Amino acid sequence: MINFIMLVGAVTAIGLAPTSVRAHGLSQGAKHAGLIIFDICGAGALGFVIVKSGFAHVALQQLTHLIPIIFVPFVLAALIETAQGSRVVTAVITAEVLAGSEVITSIHPIPLILLISAGSCIVSYVTDPFFWLVQRTTGDDIKTVVKEYTLPIAFAGIGIFIVAVMMEYLFFGTISAS
C-alpha cells in the first residue's frame, strides 16, 4: 500500500509541476537515479553476503562477550557500515543479525532502533556509495567531502548514541552487561 501511495504522490507532483520545472527535475533526477539504485542494490547484495558468510553472527557473539550489551547494536552497525557502506542496508542487516539474540530482549525497542541508527552513521567514508555520489555531484575534493559530509554524519551518530543510552538508563531501566 505504501508503494502505491508513494507512486501516486510522485505522479501527482510531476503532473502538477509546471513544464519547465518538470523537465528540469526529471533531467536532474534521472542523472543520479541510476547511481542511487546501484548504491542500494549493490549494498544490499553485499549485505546479503555478509549475513550469509556468518561474519555478522561471529561479530555479534564476540561483541556480547567483550562489551556491555548496550553498546553491541551500535558497534555491530558501525562494523557492518564500514564493510558495506549503505546506512539503510546496514540498519536492516544489523536488525536481522540481532533478531533472536539476547540483545533485543535486553534493550527497549526505541533505544535499540536509535543505537542501530547511530552505528550506521559512524563510518560514511569510502565504502559508502553515497559518499562518492556527494563527491561527484558537488565536485569537491575528498578532504572537503569528509569535512562536510562524513564528519557531520559521524557527529550525528554520536549524538544519537548518547541520546539512546540516556533513554535506556533514564526511562527504561538499567540494563545489565552481558
Results as ranks from 00 to 15, higher is better:
46 L>W: 04
74 F>Q: 09
73 P>S: 08
46 L>E: 04
47 G>D: 00
69 I>Q: 13
57 H>D: 07
57 H>G: 01
47 G>V: 03
61 Q>M: 09
67 I>F: 11
34 G>M: 06
66 L>Q: 09
57 H>L: 04
70 I>Q: 02
51 V>N: 07
44 G>C: 02
34 G>R: 09
34 G>C: 08
69 I>V: 15
52 K>N: 03
71 F>P: 06
37 I>Y: 10
35 L>Q: 15
58 V>R: 11
74 F>D: 12
66 L>V: 14
36 I>A: 11
62 Q>N: 10
50 I>L: 15
59 A>I: 01
61 Q>I: 01
63 L>Y: 13
49 V>N: 00
73 P>F: 04
74 F>N: 08
43 A>N: 14
66 L>M: 12
67 I>M: 06
55 F>E: 02
69 I>T: 15
41 C>L: 14
58 V>W: 08
59 A>G: 07
69 I>D: 10
47 G>P: 05
34 G>K: 04
63 L>G: 07
36 I>V: 15
65 H>A: 09
46 L>A: 06
48 F>H: 05
42 G>P: 06
67 I>D: 09
56 A>D: 03
67 I>V: 15
55 F>K: 02
61 Q>W: 05
42 G>E: 04
36 I>L: 15
51 V>C: 00
51 V>R: 05
41 C>R: 05
67 I>S: 09
66 L>I: 13
55 F>T: 11
61 Q>G: 08
64 T>Y: 00
38 F>C: 13
43 A>K: 04
71 F>D: 13
37 I>N: 01
66 L>P: 02
70 I>T: 02
71 F>L: 15
57 H>I: 01
68 P>R: 09
45 A>G: 10
72 V>G: 08
54 G>W: 06
64 T>Q: 12
66 L>S: 11
62 Q>Y: 07
40 I>C: 00
59 A>E: 03
60 L>V: 11
44 G>A: 02
75 V>G: 08
36 I>F: 10
43 A>S: 15
46 L>C: 07
51 V>I: 05
47 G>F: 00
66 L>E: 06
60 L>R: 07
45 A>Y: 08
75 V>I: 15
49 V>L: 09
74 F>H: 10
60 L>F: 10
62 Q>D: 09
70 I>V: 09
37 I>G: 12
38 F>M: 15
57 H>C: 00
76 L>N: 13
36 I>E: 12
66 L>K: 06
76 L>H: 11
52 K>F: 00
54 G>Y: 03
53 S>D: 06
39 D>Q: 10
45 A>Q: 03
55 F>L: 14
62 Q>E: 11
56 A>T: 01
73 P>A: 03
50 I>Q: 04
53 S>V: 04
56 A>V: 00
35 L>M: 15
41 C>K: 02
71 F>Q: 12
60 L>Y: 11
63 L>N: 13
75 V>T: 12
45 A>P: 03
59 A>R: 02
50 I>E: 11
50 I>H: 03
40 I>N: 02
64 T>A: 03
75 V>Y: 01
55 F>Y: 11
35 L>Y: 14
57 H>K: 09
54 G>I: 05
34 G>W: 06
37 I>S: 14
